[in-house]
């Protein structure tokens, strides 16, 4: 996909949803105000997807996938919600959350790297397992200690989320861009056998990648709990799909060997605008559509995923066609 297409797509999406939402602009000041608040609200909403899309991009560079991210975020949030919402929260729940997030990712990594389970199967299994663990921890309850924790609401605000996401992408992203680590991952995703012959420690790299993905579920859980204030075992359904669609739309190839975290930012924003736009357009939907407009989210997510992958593999005529023919078997990683 050509790089300028994504921002254009994003602007077109914002324009479309603004047109069908019920806002009226009386003056230029109204217009500026509306978009100021719109952007200030958008980043906190999109923070979990933005943070996770960084990890998912790295995972996809190795031709892997992690379907358990949603379950991991909710499990970390559920375990953190077991603690009292006071000053002590910072000393107890936070370190435990970080440790748990890393461990969950490490388990995924062990399955993929040591036991050689295909990533999609391994993480499909752990997705179910971690969701089950959420039910064990929470039962039918919903816990909300987060608003009582002093200073916690900073992570729900525009400044807090922009700082967290900004540090991750500015520092992490630029380090990744120029690091040898990324090039090794690209080679590993492009051709695993060649990577092994080239002396790249394949098992170690895969473990690192999935552990990083796990670790990133902690800041995602932090932003999610600070924003929503409460968590239950069924929170965040379908988050993994949103993250995958965001990354794929950002130009990362599912077959591995190509991708950039900066593209994923715009991909994640596209998803956030879609979410926000459908919410804003509910009045228009009620008047003009015979069904609830929020159901369109599922359909559009599926459509966007297909469109993103198709554009990545076929639309750019300067590159050879995607090696994954319809008859090709999925690559074991």
């Amino acid at each position: 996909m050509r790089p300028y297409l994504l921002p254009i797509l994003l602007l077109a999406e914002i324009a479309l949803f603004t047109a069908i939402s019920d806002v009226q602009f009386g003056s230029v000041a109204d217009f500026v105000d509306y978009f100021r608040y719109y952007l200030m609200d958008l980043v906190p909403q999109a923070a979990p997807v933005l943070i996770l899309s960084f990890g998912m991009t790295v995972v996809m560079l190795t031709a892997g996938i992690d379907l358990s991210v949603g379950s991991m975020v909710v499990l970390v949030a559920c375990v953190m919600s077991q603690f009292e919402g006071d000053q002590q929260f910072w000393m107890t729940a936070i370190p435990i959350g970080i440790g748990l997030a890393f461990t969950l990712g490490f388990v995924n990594g062990s399955l993929v790297a040591w036991l050689d389970v295909p990533p999609i199967i391994a993480t499909l299994g752990t997705m179910m397992f971690y969701r089950g663990a959420c039910s064990i921890v929470m039962g039918d309850r919903e816990n909300d200690p987060f608003y009582d924790v002093p200073g916690y609401e900073w992570f729900a605000g525009t400044v807090g989320t922009v700082v967290v996401v900004g540090i991750l992408f500015a520092l992490g992203g630029s380090w990744l861009q120029w690091s040898r680590w990324r090039r090794e991952l690209l080679m590993l995703g492009g051709n695993r056998v060649a990577a092994r012959y080239a002396g790249i420690p394949v098992t170690k790299r895969l473990l690192q990648v999935y552990s990083l993905m796990g670790l990133l579920t902690f800041p995602a859980a932090l932003c999610f709990t600070a924003h929503d204030g409460a968590v239950n075992a069924g929170s965040l359904p379908g988050l993994e799909l949103k993250v995958i669609v965001a990354v794929v739309l950002g130009g990362t190839q599912v077959e591995g060997g190509k991708g950039s975290v900066f593209g994923s930012v715009i991909g994640a924003l596209l998803i956030a605008v879609l979410d926000e736009g459908l919410r804003g357009a509910s009045g228009w939907g009620d008047r003009n559509l015979p069904f609830e407009i929020s159901h369109l989210r599922f359909v559009l997510l599926g459509g966007l995923l297909l469109l993103g992958v198709w554009l990545n593999s076929h639309a750019d005529k300067s590159r050879p066609l995607n090696p994954a023919s319809p008859t090709a078997t999925p690559k074991p990683t």
Binding site: I120, V254, E255, L301, V309, N322, A324, S325, P326
Partner: peptide, 12 residues
Amino acid sequence: LEISPIIVTLAG
């Protein structure tokens, strides 16, 4: 579409 079956059906 000549896309991997996993992705097509994940979208499905």
